[in-house]
Design a protein around this nucleic acid. Structure first.
Lengths: 149, 149
DNA sequence: GATAGTTGATATTTATAACTATCATGTTTG
DNA sequence: CAAACATGATAGTTATAAATATCAACTATC
């Protein structure tokens, strides 16, 4: 227990329980749950509602903590930053879709934190959406924006 | 003393001393100097090195404080946010210029906080550069980015 | 079916960012 | 040429974000 699994080839496979993840990261369980509540991470959830973390999830949390404790950007700041990811470009939203999409309009939290109902994002769960998966390091938002500028 | 001057038509004219500005904003003088040190504001400086604040400067500080105290984004977060303003697009930098420009490469502070030597930005002081002047409210970075996306 | 680990929620602790007070020195103003 | 206000710098205070501890109820595992 509490060991990094090297038998898993896919870094996106959710294998670690919350206690293992917390141990590997050197943080407490409530902290992990807080990051999730704030929308900084979306762990996989089993049918029973239990969380399972992948290797990429761990990396993601590592980046979050570097940003909070190293760069001194607050959680609210990170959320604001993540809201700048041009999801409407990545997903190629139409003008009509943008006009009614909170993720396009607002800028206080990442797109995956808004309710997805009647737009094209409701087709795929956010945990497997490229907008979420392709940007594990919140310090790389600028890079991402540059691509579409 | 300590009164908003209504005789000044140009909101960019630097008229208020630091004590007047602090009083009008309801904050201390060191706080104003801190915001400046962090690159969140560039007050006009007289030949004697004394600061003079314009009406727009006051508005800018008001927005900074809303962001810190209301939105709960830290100063480091605001700096990071301001670094995302696509100055290279606004100023129409060449590929060669971008390649050596810290403002293009880095993302920890606004472009006007980097030393400007051998690029086209050295022609104009940052205080009168449109990249700085056109975005008084740091909460409107997303709007600005959208224009160029 | 007993032990270990999970869930969300609330209460508490801790670390520190944001802000202020105060300093000796320099500048402005009547 | 005083009085008032500026300067940068340091030291101290305060507010609170980030992290943790603990809870009763629920789920997993052997």
């Amino acid at each position: 227990m509490f060991e990094i699994r090297k038998d898993i080839t896919d870094a996106n496979t959710p294998v670690y329980t919350i206690s293992t993840a917390a141990h590997l990261l050197g943080i407490s369980i409530p902290t992990l749950r807080m990051y999730e509540k704030e929308g900084l991470i979306i762990p996989y959830k089993k049918e029973s509602n239990q969380r399972r973390y992948s290797q990429n999830d761990l990396y993601r949390v590592k980046c979050i903590r570097e940003t909070i404790n190293g760069t001194k950007i607050s959680i609210q700041g990170i959320k604001h930053l993540l809201s700048l990811i041009p999801c409407w470009k990545i997903k190629n939203c139409s003008t009509d879709e943008r006009a009614v999409c909170e993720a396009f309009i607002s800028h206080d939290k990442p797109c995956w934190m808004y309710p997805h109902k009647n737009n094209l994002c409701s087709e795929i769960p956010c945990i497997s959406c490229e907008v979420y998966t392709k940007l594990s390091d919140c310090k790389k938002v600028k890079e991402t924006i540059k691509i579409y500028l």
